[in-house]
Amino acid sequence: TTIHVGDLTLKYDNPKKAYEIAKKLAKKYNLTVTIKNGKITVT
């Protein structure tokens, strides 16, 4: 599972963990989490 945050690309083997991290990042920086085709993007 890949999380895209701006220019950063973070890879995680565990999709659930990746989603949790994405949610935390989104909350911290007041951003939105988008999931599309298995890719998690924080914008």
Rank of each mutant, 00 (worst) to 15 (best):
3 I>K: 02
4 H>Y: 11
23 K>E: 12
28 K>C: 08
40 I>K: 00
13 D>R: 06
40 I>T: 02
10 L>N: 03
13 D>Q: 06
39 K>Y: 14
32 T>W: 04
13 D>L: 07
4 H>E: 09
25 L>T: 01
14 N>E: 07
42 V>G: 00
39 K>D: 14
36 K>Q: 14
18 A>Q: 01
8 L>N: 03
9 T>M: 12
42 V>A: 04
15 P>E: 12
16 K>W: 12
37 N>S: 09
27 K>Q: 10
30 N>A: 07
36 K>A: 14
34 T>E: 10
39 K>H: 15
16 K>I: 12
33 V>H: 00
26 A>E: 05
18 A>I: 04
26 A>H: 03
13 D>P: 10
6 G>M: 07
40 I>F: 04
34 T>P: 00
17 K>Q: 14
27 K>G: 06
8 L>P: 02
25 L>M: 08
29 Y>L: 05
11 K>V: 15
37 N>C: 07
30 N>Y: 05
20 E>G: 05
18 A>E: 01
36 K>D: 13
30 N>Q: 09
38 G>I: 03
6 G>K: 02
31 L>E: 01
33 V>D: 00
14 N>L: 04
27 K>V: 09
13 D>Y: 06
32 T>K: 10
1 T>D: 05
35 I>Q: 05
23 K>N: 11
24 K>F: 13
5 V>L: 14
11 K>H: 15
16 K>R: 10
34 T>Y: 08
24 K>G: 07
12 Y>H: 03
31 L>R: 00
21 I>W: 10
20 E>S: 08
25 L>G: 00
41 T>W: 15
9 T>L: 13
10 L>A: 03
40 I>W: 02
16 K>S: 11
39 K>P: 01
14 N>R: 02
15 P>C: 11
40 I>V: 05
9 T>P: 03
2 T>F: 06
28 K>E: 09
2 T>Y: 09
39 K>F: 14
17 K>L: 15
5 V>C: 14
14 N>T: 13
26 A>M: 04
11 K>A: 13
39 K>I: 15
13 D>V: 04
29 Y>V: 03
24 K>H: 12
30 N>D: 09
41 T>D: 06
5 V>A: 02
11 K>L: 14
23 K>F: 11
24 K>W: 15
10 L>V: 08
33 V>A: 03
21 I>L: 09
18 A>K: 00
37 N>R: 07
38 G>A: 07
13 D>E: 08
24 K>M: 13
12 Y>E: 04
22 A>K: 00
26 A>V: 03
24 K>E: 09
11 K>Y: 15
36 K>T: 14
36 K>N: 13
39 K>L: 14
14 N>G: 05
19 Y>W: 14
37 N>E: 13
6 G>S: 04
12 Y>I: 10
34 T>F: 07
17 K>R: 11
42 V>F: 06
4 H>W: 08
8 L>Q: 03
34 T>V: 13
9 T>I: 15
3 I>L: 14
3 I>F: 02
13 D>M: 05
4 H>I: 14
43 T>K: 10
35 I>A: 04
36 K>R: 12
17 K>H: 10
43 T>D: 05
9 T>Y: 09
20 E>Q: 12
8 L>W: 09
14 N>I: 06
14 N>P: 04
19 Y>D: 04
7 D>C: 15
15 P>S: 11
36 K>Y: 09
3 I>A: 02
35 I>D: 03
17 K>I: 15
36 K>M: 13
31 L>Q: 01
42 V>E: 00
17 K>D: 13
40 I>L: 08
3 I>W: 00
22 A>W: 06
8 L>T: 04
3 I>S: 02
41 T>I: 14
20 E>W: 12
23 K>G: 07
26 A>Q: 04
13 D>H: 05
25 L>C: 02
28 K>H: 09
20 E>R: 09
43 T>R: 12
42 V>P: 00
21 I>P: 00
17 K>C: 08
21 I>C: 10
21 I>F: 14
12 Y>Q: 03
40 I>Y: 04
31 L>D: 01
11 K>I: 15
13 D>T: 06
24 K>C: 11
19 Y>G: 04
16 K>G: 10
41 T>V: 12
7 D>E: 12
5 V>R: 02
24 K>T: 08
12 Y>N: 03
11 K>Q: 15
29 Y>W: 08
40 I>Q: 01
41 T>Q: 08
40 I>N: 01
12 Y>L: 05
11 K>R: 13
2 T>P: 04
33 V>L: 12
16 K>L: 12
18 A>V: 03
39 K>E: 15
3 I>H: 03
15 P>V: 13
3 I>G: 01
35 I>V: 13
6 G>R: 02
17 K>P: 01
9 T>R: 11
20 E>I: 11
32 T>Y: 06
37 N>P: 11
7 D>A: 11
1 T>Y: 13
10 L>Q: 03
23 K>L: 15
3 I>P: 01
24 K>A: 13
13 D>N: 07
33 V>T: 02
31 L>N: 01
41 T>Y: 15
30 N>K: 08
6 G>W: 08
26 A>W: 02
43 T>A: 13
28 K>D: 08
32 T>P: 02
23 K>M: 15
10 L>E: 04
9 T>H: 12
10 L>G: 04
42 V>D: 00
37 N>G: 12
9 T>V: 15
33 V>C: 04
36 K>C: 11
41 T>F: 15
21 I>Q: 06
39 K>G: 09
28 K>S: 05
41 T>C: 07
5 V>W: 15
4 H>L: 13
31 L>Y: 03
40 I>H: 01
16 K>Q: 13
11 K>C: 15
30 N>G: 14
15 P>Q: 11
16 K>C: 08
41 T>E: 10
19 Y>K: 09
8 L>Y: 07
12 Y>T: 08
6 G>C: 14
4 H>A: 10
2 T>D: 04
27 K>M: 09
36 K>W: 05
35 I>T: 05
16 K>Y: 11
1 T>H: 09
43 T>L: 12
2 T>C: 10
31 L>S: 03
40 I>M: 06
28 K>F: 12
28 K>Q: 10
33 V>P: 00
20 E>A: 12
22 A>Q: 00
27 K>W: 06
16 K>A: 12
43 T>Y: 10
2 T>W: 05
21 I>E: 08
30 N>C: 07
2 T>L: 09
2 T>M: 09
35 I>H: 05
34 T>C: 07
5 V>M: 10
27 K>Y: 07
14 N>A: 04
26 A>G: 06
22 A>H: 00
15 P>T: 11
6 G>D: 04
42 V>T: 01
11 K>P: 07
6 G>P: 03
10 L>K: 06
1 T>F: 13
32 T>E: 09
41 T>M: 14
28 K>M: 12
21 I>T: 08
3 I>T: 02
2 T>A: 07
13 D>C: 13
7 D>V: 07
8 L>S: 02
33 V>E: 00
7 D>T: 10
30 N>W: 05
34 T>A: 09
27 K>R: 11
8 L>K: 06
29 Y>D: 01
36 K>G: 13
28 K>W: 11
35 I>S: 06
22 A>M: 07
10 L>F: 09
2 T>V: 12
5 V>Q: 02
33 V>Y: 02
5 V>K: 03
31 L>C: 07
5 V>T: 01
24 K>Y: 15
35 I>F: 07
39 K>A: 14
27 K>N: 08
25 L>F: 04
21 I>V: 14
29 Y>P: 01
3 I>C: 08
40 I>G: 01
42 V>C: 03
6 G>H: 08
28 K>V: 08
37 N>M: 10
5 V>F: 15
11 K>W: 15
33 V>F: 05
7 D>R: 12
9 T>C: 14
9 T>W: 08
7 D>K: 13
21 I>K: 04
23 K>R: 12
13 D>W: 09
12 Y>V: 12
9 T>K: 13
38 G>K: 06
16 K>F: 11
18 A>F: 04
26 A>N: 02
40 I>S: 00
14 N>F: 05
9 T>G: 05
25 L>Y: 02
31 L>K: 01
17 K>Y: 13
42 V>K: 00
6 G>Y: 06
34 T>I: 15
6 G>F: 08
37 N>I: 10
19 Y>Q: 08
20 E>C: 05
41 T>K: 07
36 K>I: 14
36 K>L: 13
15 P>L: 14
3 I>E: 01
19 Y>H: 10
32 T>D: 05
27 K>D: 12
38 G>H: 09
42 V>M: 15
41 T>H: 14
22 A>S: 02
8 L>F: 11
24 K>L: 12
2 T>H: 08
35 I>L: 09
37 N>K: 09
23 K>A: 11
43 T>C: 07
34 T>K: 10
33 V>R: 00
28 K>L: 12
9 T>A: 10
11 K>S: 14
23 K>W: 09
30 N>P: 01
18 A>D: 01
22 A>I: 07
41 T>S: 10
10 L>S: 01
15 P>M: 14
41 T>L: 14
35 I>N: 06
25 L>N: 00
5 V>H: 05
25 L>H: 00
42 V>W: 02
19 Y>P: 00
13 D>G: 05
18 A>R: 01
2 T>R: 07
32 T>F: 08
25 L>I: 15
7 D>N: 15
20 E>T: 07
